[in-house]
Design a protein around this nucleic acid. Sequence first.
DNA 1: CTGAAAGCGCTTACAG
DNA 2: CTGAAAGCGCTTACAG
Lengths: 335, 335
Amino acid sequence: MKDVAGVAGVSLATVSRVVNGSGDVRTDLKEAVQDAIELLGYRRDLTASTLRRADRLSASIGLVFEDVSNPFFSAVHRGIEDVAREHGTLTFAGSSDEDPVRERELAEALAARGVDGLVVVPCTGDQSYLLRERQAGTALVFIDRPPRFVDADAVVSDNAGGARGAVEHLLAAGHRRIGFLGDRPEIFTADERRRGYREALGGAGLAWDPALERTGLVDSDQAAAAATDLLRTADPPTALFAGQNLITIGTMRALKELELRHDVALVGFDDIALAEMVEPGITVVAQDPYALGHRAAELLFDQLQGEAQGTQHVVLPTRLIQRGSGEIGPSGTGA
Amino acid sequence: MKDVAGVAGVSLATVSRVVNGSGDVRTDLKEAVQDAIELLGYRRDLTASTLRRADRLSASIGLVFEDVSNPFFSAVHRGIEDVAREHGTLTFAGSSDEDPVRERELAEALAARGVDGLVVVPCTGDQSYLLRERQAGTALVFIDRPPRFVDADAVVSDNAGGARGAVEHLLAAGHRRIGFLGDRPEIFTADERRRGYREALGGAGLAWDPALERTGLVDSDQAAAAATDLLRTADPPTALFAGQNLITIGTMRALKELELRHDVALVGFDDIALAEMVEPGITVVAQDPYALGHRAAELLFDQLQGEAQGTQHVVLPTRLIQRGSGEIGPSGTGA
DNA sequence: CTGAAAGCGCTTACAG
DNA sequence: CTGAAAGCGCTTACAG
């Protein structure tokens, strides 16, 4: 910038005004500056600009996900990116791998780089360490799960309601013994879905049977093993509700191997690619991860623009998609 | 930092030395500084540090993908993140949507924020605008596709070789009329896969028949329509090679609707979730997107650490995974 | 080992 | 409308 000022024969302040389009600058000087910029191939250093500017905004935000490579979170990412782009803002993203220590390291590393806001998927644990960042002016929105020990905006899906709907769908088909396969109950979403499952059973006047619940399943292999185990018991369930996409995949694999695909009903939480191509098609309760990200980003920019009105807790609805596996009756399709 | 120095009763320089662990500091002063940091809840501003430091490194890198929400790129992302994390570096990521203008905007926005390096998936077009950033010291690696008009490190899959292997696999099963369904040929990977297809046919002494090639397919719907059209011709192919994951899904859908799933062979490029659960299982040529990202990030940090030895062009092998659809003979399985 | 001073690249009152 | 000067939060020679 100093060089540009030199070549254009003006002061630093004038170059700054031209570059930022702020304040009026005489046409001939403006042109001289633009020519000098062109000539020297000058690029503004945005970080230096942020450091000095009154608003101190970096036009960047940070994303703390469980895993950037999980299709669910990458769809969330895109929802956020599209809003951020409208605000000329770039996104940093990182994976916590469900580790509270790593979540905190990531969030603090992001804050140390001066992000204007943070969208975080909280691990089990305590997010109060983020209070300090918020006090320093960092906008903050939680996504997928509510935070603990922090009162802040959050956007989540209707996990309990979606699960309840899924189980009610199975009940309506006549099932009375419905198994639940879930992730670790410490995870908010996993716990909520189990709650929905239990509520639906209660609503139908059924007591929930601990023998029909298998939780702590962290990948599709564990899910397949648990499903196999459950179906081999003396009084097996006639329907299964799988609490998450990887669990649905594992359960489907188990049903295929046991040759029970057309005999045991299945509804999964989260939609999956190719779900309609499998035999039978997989009935799911779908979330809208893109919308989750989009809404969270909107709340974040509302905060940044001082348009936030109190703490917002947004709950997005889920949608039941019937494809066949969830419409199998208690005595199978006979196919 | 000024406040910390005040509370600890030392100079700014001493605080800086303690925070950075650089230079020797008397134990009592060090403790006084640490106490003051604790007391004030002081957090270092990394961007200000970057601005002043000799190496000017920001410990952040930028990623320009086609689409962050595409599972292929999100796996690449994770491969890069894991290496970056070892170097204490954070990643910015954005989507170009295959638009050269947006690619450039993104890359330049990233550069303006002082990233140490850039990993880019180049759109069709000219990447020479990146020469300026590289001259300014930004490390640069291309991924998935080689750049145009820039001599720089690149990590790509063996697209032509993988495609050739897929088609040779179909030829070995006895097929003589093999159709090709591909993305826009302007995209490097799409063109390479078509080249592999044609080479395999040539190697078997077969002339390639333009009537068997359908390209320019940008989503699964277009792929399904093209596959349907191809299979309804007077002399239809007995096998299909689908050049990309979305195209494979569309083709599979068409085969299902025409009830030809067990009669027409199919091999797809790129692996897909649930591919083994479909009937028949989908035979694919799999890339390793995580490895692609991992290798690219290694090259990037080699450049940053001055350990780069000339321009590297890395080609990663692909792997044929047989699951059934690619093992159907010219007269079907009869299933 | 420690501190006073200069300066990274920029913006912003403040005079003129 | 324009420029000289101060300063954002930090690091880094340079003296001592």
